[in-house]
């Protein structure tokens, strides 16, 4: 499928769509036009509450609403949802395990021109460190929509990350079945496994094709749920392919790469090579050159996969 849709767009559409089916309220912090919660606001103005530019207060208000029985979506950019409001998310939402869904958009470096202050590359690390927090990073619009519905039906705190940049639609809305905590084998292979999340999943599929042409059989696994992570699918990949490369639009510290390495080290030690933002802040620019600048490319993924394969013989 050639369609490209930003997952934030899918998020806003899903809120508006599921607003008919489920009873929930939506909060935003003056970014409804950008996070796309504005689509929900237009359809359900009486269930939408703008909190102004006060993200800490918004997260605590969300907790209060949830404590009084409401299902709440609270949205801002990932930088302000997971970063600015970290402590409110931890203490007001995480500690009492309240039913708040944090819809964090504009995550990663694909924010683009706004630059480093707005490019959150630490949100997985921050959110997955909170006990009981579910962390989801959809790969495309289909998975984003499905993740929103799954979050509504799950009782407890959920952090869902959405992107600003349009990414290929890789799943069919009519057949895709999303389950929190379940990874998806996208392609089978025997030499190495690319464990990817978010926008890196479609790149992983492209990388696998190039690797195949070079005689390397790569398995591709989509991990949408960063936490709780699907240990079975990762350990199976480690056992049967013997090497893993992870791919994420996040710091290589604390995110998917770290989570996979934790599982592999404790369950089936094999080489794990991480591809992500290498302990650097972001930068302003158009998305394609930014992805080049930070090595988040199909070519680099191919090189990392080969490096992982090479480590097997050590």
């Amino acid at each position: 499928m050639a369609d490209k849709i930003a997952t934030r767009e899918a998020y806003g559409n899903a809120l508006a769509e599921f607003g008919d089916k489920y009873d929930f309220v939506v909060l935003d912090a003056d970014l409804a036009a950008a996070t796309k919660t504005g689509i929900f606001k237009k359809k359900f103005p009486e269930r939408f509450f703008d909190c102004g530019i006060a993200e800490g207060n918004m997260m605590s208000v969300a907790a209060g609403l949830a404590a009084a029985g409401k299902v709440v979506f609270a949205s801002s950019f990932a930088m302000f949802a997971a970063g600015r409001a970290y402590e409110q998310v931890r203490n007001c939402i995480g500690y009492p395990h309240l039913n708040v869904k944090i819809g964090a958009t504009h995550a990663g470096i694909t924010v683009g021109e706004d630059g480093a202050t707005h490019q959150c590359i630490e949100d997985f690390a921050l959110m997955r460190a909170i006990p009981g927090m579910v962390v989801i990073n959809p790969a495309d619009a289909t998975e984003a929509r499905a993740a929103v519905e799954a979050a509504i039906n799950y009782v407890g705190p959920v952090y869902i990350r959405f992107g600003r940049y349009a990414v290929p639609v890789i799943y069919d809305k009519d057949t895709y079945n999303f389950e929190i905590g379940k990874g998806v084998n996208m392609l089978d292979g025997k030499d190495v496994t690319i464990v990817a999340t978010g926008m890196m999943v479609s790149m992983a599929l492209d990388a696998a094709k190039i690797l195949a042409n070079e005689g390397i059989s790569a398995r591709v696994v989509n991990i949408a749920t960063i936490k709780p992570i699907d240990k079975d699918i990762i350990l199976d990949a480690a056992r049967y392919t013997g090497a893993i490369v992870t791919a994420e639009e996040h710091s290589i510290i604390g995110g998917l790469g770290s989570a996979v390495a934790e599982v592999v080290c404790e369950g089936c030690p094999v080489p794990v090579v991480r591809m992500g933002v290498e302990d650097k802040f972001g930068h302003s620019g158009k998305v394609p050159p930014l992805l080049e600048m930070y090595g988040l490319t199909v070519e680099n993924l191919v090189a990392k996969a080969k490096a992982a394969v090479a480590l097997k013989s050590h």
Binding site: G56, S60, V61, G64, L65, A67, K70, Q88, N91
Partner: peptide, 19 residues
């Protein structure tokens, strides 16, 4: 409501009142 970290409880009370 779980409280203790100062400044947060007042906001959660706002959420309850809004609910």
């Amino acid at each position: 409501m779980s409280t203790g970290s100062l400044g947060l409880g007042f906001s959660t009370a706002c959420g309850m009142a809004l609910a």
